[in-house]
């Protein structure tokens, strides 16, 4: 059995140079664009703030997942959540799963709004690590549309409570369900 190829000193030097360049270069992939569309959605597990059960992103594989970063201090976030609640009801049977990630500093305020808005999908708390996984969440609302294979298809900055987003959702639910 042949030995696995050893990296040459030149290859190591090239890798090191590339690493230093990417670290220092101002044109390296930016904060917000570092999670690209059509890349696997970074997996995570966090506790639901309503019942403290673990919520695994991976467990939703096979569904179309809409991940919504929000916070109670974000007016546009609160304004769009009733629409998300409607979508969750309307498209649950077709395989839509919405997942809320609160950027609040504590879960108490988030839980209060979960009840006030009758949120009907799991909500977990974010933390710097989770925000980093999704490319940095430096403004709200931000949402990600993940297909049934667990691949990020869209990143939305700003409100998504419009008919265009719903059309994209429906299209993805139909396309995905048509696959074998």
């Amino acid at each position: 059995m042949p030995e696995p190829a050893q990296p040459s000193r030149r290859n190591l030097l090239q890798a090191l140079t590339a690493g230093v360049f990417l670290y220092a270069c101002p044109f390296a992939p930016t904060w917000a664009s570092s999670i690209a569309a059509r890349s696997p959605a970074p997996d995570f597990t966090r506790s639901s703030i309503t019942n403290h059960t673990p919520v695994h992103l991976r467990a939703f594989r096979g569904k179309v997942v809409l991940i919504n970063f929000w916070a109670t201090w974000c007016g546009p976030c609160l304004a769009e959540i009733p629409q998300l609640v409607t979508w969750q009801n309307r498209y649950r049977a077709q395989g839509l799963q919405i997942l809320g990630i609160s950027m609040d500093d504590s879960s108490r305020a988030a839980l209060d709004w979960v009840h006030r808005l009758s949120i009907n999908y799991p909500v977990v708390m974010s933390d710097p690590r989770l925000s980093l996984l999704y490319g940095g969440i430096l403004g709200l609302p931000v949402s990600f549309l993940v297909d049934r294979a667990g691949v990020v298809q869209r990143r939305y900055e700003g409100s998504i409570a419009g008919s265009q987003t719903e059309q994209e959702l429906v299209r993805m639910l139909r396309q995905s369900s048509a696959k074998p």
Binding site: W31, A32, S33, G136, L138, G139, E157
Partner: peptide, 15 residues
């Protein structure tokens, strides 16, 4: 105008 990510960090301004 939009948020810190879009209007500052993504523009390569110092962070």
């Amino acid at each position: 105008d939009n948020n810190f990510g879009a209007d500052w960090a993504d523009k390569g301004y110092p962070v």
